[in-house]
Simulated assay, not measured.
Amino acid sequence: MTNRKIITIDGGSAEYWRQRKEGFRLIYAAERAAKRLETAPMYLHGGYDEDGDVIAIENLGPYDDMDDAIRAIKGNETAVSILVAQRRTQIGNYPINAVIDALLPEHGGFEDPD
């Protein structure tokens, strides 16, 4: 016997549409972060040292932004349900474990091959 979580939806309520708007906003923010991550330079110019050589600084900002966006999606039940309905298990190259777990409940998440 399959146990299913039955969700009651009141499509006319303001709260429903506020939650949907927030869910789609979080997904769109993650898509924008993924796009920035694709085009962001790997290193930034950090000035010059005493020999005149360029000091390269790793550009970690886009990676941090993408991590924050994925974390925000995982924390929002509506965003996860939207991605489950779309069957989107990743944004960019970042998997969303909450969506994978919802689509494959018997899988139990990712396993480390080691």
Results as ranks from 00 to 15, higher is better:
4 R>M: 13
9 I>D: 03
10 D>N: 15
12 G>E: 11
14 A>V: 09
15 E>K: 14
17 W>G: 08
19 Q>I: 00
20 R>G: 00
24 F>L: 08
30 A>G: 04
31 E>I: 07
32 R>W: 00
33 A>K: 04
38 E>D: 15
41 P>C: 09
43 Y>S: 14
46 G>K: 06
47 G>P: 11
49 D>Q: 11
49 D>F: 04
53 D>M: 07
53 D>R: 14
55 I>G: 11
57 I>T: 03
59 N>W: 03
61 G>A: 15
64 D>T: 02
65 D>R: 15
69 A>Q: 03
71 R>S: 08
72 A>P: 07
72 A>R: 09
75 G>M: 02
75 G>A: 05
76 N>H: 12
77 E>F: 01
79 A>C: 05
80 V>P: 06
81 S>P: 10
82 I>W: 04
83 L>Q: 09
83 L>E: 11
83 L>C: 12
85 A>I: 00
89 T>A: 14
93 N>Q: 12
93 N>L: 03
94 Y>I: 00
94 Y>T: 09
95 P>T: 01
96 I>A: 05
96 I>E: 09
97 N>G: 11
97 N>P: 06
99 V>T: 02
100 I>M: 10
105 P>M: 01
109 G>I: 02
111 E>H: 12
112 D>E: 01
112 D>F: 09
113 P>G: 04
114 D>V: 00
